[in-house]
């Protein structure tokens, strides 16, 4: 309480600039940026799902639209919407410019 506290930084100075997309930023920033974009979701089994990322949650459960299932290079299924259980996800990759 009585310790000398440094004065708070001036608040009206310019806020930190937003990170340039796709070159830096936290994983969370990446995920926020990629919602609504075309993505590739690779599962640990090696199967890829390509589609538009509707949303995701903290477990990396994923909702995809216009989904194509790719098994070693060939399309094996198409789904309108898909829910992918997060534990199966290896990575999410942006398939278009952010």
């Amino acid at each position: 309480m009585e310790e000398s506290t440094p004065p708070p930084p001036p608040n009206e100075s310019s806020p930190p600039p937003p990170p340039p997309a796709a070159t830096s930023g936290s994983p969370t920033d990446f995920l926020k940026g990629v919602v609504g974009k075309r993505v590739v979701v690779r599962l640990t089994s090696g199967v890829d799902y390509k589609g538009v990322l509707s949303c995701l949650d903290g477990y990396m459960n994923i909702a995809l639209e216009q989904t194509e299932e790719h098994v070693n290079g060939t399309i094996t299924n198409r789904y309108g919407d898909t829910f992918i259980r997060g534990n199966n996800v290896l990575y999410i990759s942006a398939a278009e410019a952010l």
């Binding site: 509707s54 949303c55 459960n61 829910f83």
Partner: peptide
């Protein structure tokens, strides 16, 4: 907001 999403805020909405 995300224009392509059809009123889904979280993945479980799709299941609900």
């Amino acid at each position: 907001m995300d224009p392509s999403s059809s009123g889904i805020q979280e993945p479980f909405d799709l299941i609900r």
